[in-house]
């Protein structure tokens, strides 16, 4: 969710296609700091609003690889360096036997870090969620345009009406 500067204009749409179109038009017009609220991920909306690709995958990659590396090094250190024990005549550094845990540690760290990264990226948990309209998690869609716009001087209310919003609200505080 974007950090909003009030007041905001909210256009409520009742189907995903008109939201997509409205979002595309708003972006074309040059409105800035746009946001949209949808009950399910509407595909193409992030492109229509010109959002950047999520950075979460980089975290997963780095943490996953470090998990696997650290897991392997830990096994190597405990089995061959800290206290080498002869078990069944196997070599102290028996790398094939270390493969399963190396893999599991990579997945574990990769997964946990993905979840943490998601929370950081989406600024969750939020104790006072910004619920514009309770139907936005049910069957309504919203396009949010902050009133303070540097580039465009258009009337936002008229724009939203023209884009097909079924309801228009102004949020001031």
């Amino acid at each position: 969710m974007a950090k909003f500067t009030l007041p905001l204009w909210v256009g409520i749409f009742d189907d995903p296609d008109s939201l997509l179109e409205g979002a595309g038009q708003a972006k074309e017009k040059g409105f800035e700091d746009l946001d949209a609220f949808t009950p399910y991920p509407v595909h193409g909306l992030e492109k229509a609003l010109g959002l950047k690709r999520s950075w979460v995958p980089y975290v997963t990659l780095i943490c996953g690889l470090s998990g696997a590396t650290l897991g392997y090094l830990f096994m190597l250190w405990t089995s061959a360096i800290d206290w080498p024990l002869n078990i069944g005549g196997k070599p102290f550094h028996s790398w094939p036997a270390f493969v399963p845990i190396t893999f599991e540690m990579g997945i574990l760290l990769g997964g946990v870090s993905t979840f943490i990264a998601l929370l950081v990226a989406t600024n969750l948990p939020r104790f006072k969620p910004f619920v514009i309209d309770p139907q936005l998690t049910n069957n309504r869609f919203a396009l949010v345009i902050p009133e303070k716009q540097d580039k465009v001087r258009d009337d936002i209310e008229r724009f939203l009406k023209g884009a097909g919003a079924v309801e228009i609200k102004k949020i001031t505080g």
Binding site: F37, T38, P41, V42, L45, G110, L118, L124
Partner: peptide, 24 residues
């Protein structure tokens, strides 16, 4: 719900994370 609101900016990260979880 951790205060989820359904912002498209959140869905953007959410979907990527979901895909990654599936991949892992």
């Amino acid at each position: 719900s951790l205060g989820w609101t359904g912002s498209v900016r959140d869905w953007n990260h959410y979907e990527k994370a979901y895909l990654l979880f599936a991949g892992l």
